[in-house]
Design a binder for these strands. Structure first.
Lengths: 153, 153
DNA sequence: TCCGGCATGTCAAAATACTGACATGAAAGA
DNA sequence: TCTTTCATGTCAGTATTTTGACATGCCGGA
């Protein structure tokens, strides 16, 4: 009739909500919600904040770079950048001598806004991992990377 | 975006891309992308598949139940349900004798579609965790839950 | 009993993200 | 050199998701 093939997984997982993917999504959704709420008080959305953070870390990233860094399409990133430009938080070169990518930089206002919002976001991350031992956190980071790599392959 | 040499130092986290939240989002995005691609061949979106899976596990869930279970708003879940109804994959009671929640159930076609798609999704999850030891996976699940709980509190 | 708190379903509107498509510029190879 | 290939920015259209709001139906305590 149909394949009732029992899942030969390392964990029983008879319940969908016990699956790794479900837990991953759940944790990610919880973090997103908390960040969303906290950032609203600073007049930023999560994608906007993500862009600012990336630009502070690596000034001059292009629209496509930011799209990859925030896990959205170029088109979506473009909309976010337009909003940040209108808010005066970033500047983007209108031309370039080499290549087609237009580098983006934070304005002083953008940096200031980032610094104001960063505390709230970092506090959330702190709270999220507060009772997880450092050793397990290291393993967690490594395993998340492994999973990501396994899917990209 | 050029790759930055990932130094496995857990605590300082001087680079944003080393933060737990970033890794979490990255892994979640990778999983979402893989599921999206696989489910497209079965004519399902990720939210649709999620609803079918939940309904198979717990028949009679309401729209609000499914919204919570898929981590979206009631309104979004409502749209998803409408699509599933039009596709004939689910049925929803139009009235109830007690309360306001309208229970949803899978149709035979819905169950069949779920079984067809499930294999592809489970294979993705398998691949995602294939080289992660069972002990670490157990810890991972627990830590994801801890993080979620820390944020809900 | 009555009433305030709560959860639910639903409508409308806006915001957000995606797919598909196209032109441009650069690098690599024949 | 010429051509192919690829990455980028951008436009248009669609789909998805959210915020805000409102009416309905339970349940508890006053």
């Amino acid at each position: 009739m149909k394949d009732r093939a029992p899942v030969p997984s390392p964990h029983p997982a008879q319940d969908v909500t016990e699956h790794v993917g479900y837990r991953l999504k759940k944790a990610s959704a919880a973090l997103r919600g908390a960040m969303d709420k906290a950032l609203r008080e600073h007049g930023l959305t999560v994608p906007q904040y993500s862009c600012l953070e990336l630009l502070d870390e690596r000034p001059g990233l292009s629209n496509a770079d930011l799209a990859r860094g925030t896990f959205v399409t170029r088109q979506s990133a473009n909309v976010v950048l337009r909003g940040l430009k209108e808010a005066g938080l970033i500047t983007q070169a209108t031309s370039t001598d080499h290549g087609r990518a237009l580098p983006v930089h934070l304005t002083p206002a953008g940096l200031e806004r980032l610094h104001a919002a960063r505390g709230a976001v970092y506090a959330i991350e702190e709270r999220m991992i507060e009772n997880i031992p450092a050793r397990r956190l290291t393993a967690l980071l490594a395993d998340l990377d492994t999973m990501t790599g396994n899917l990209e392959a």
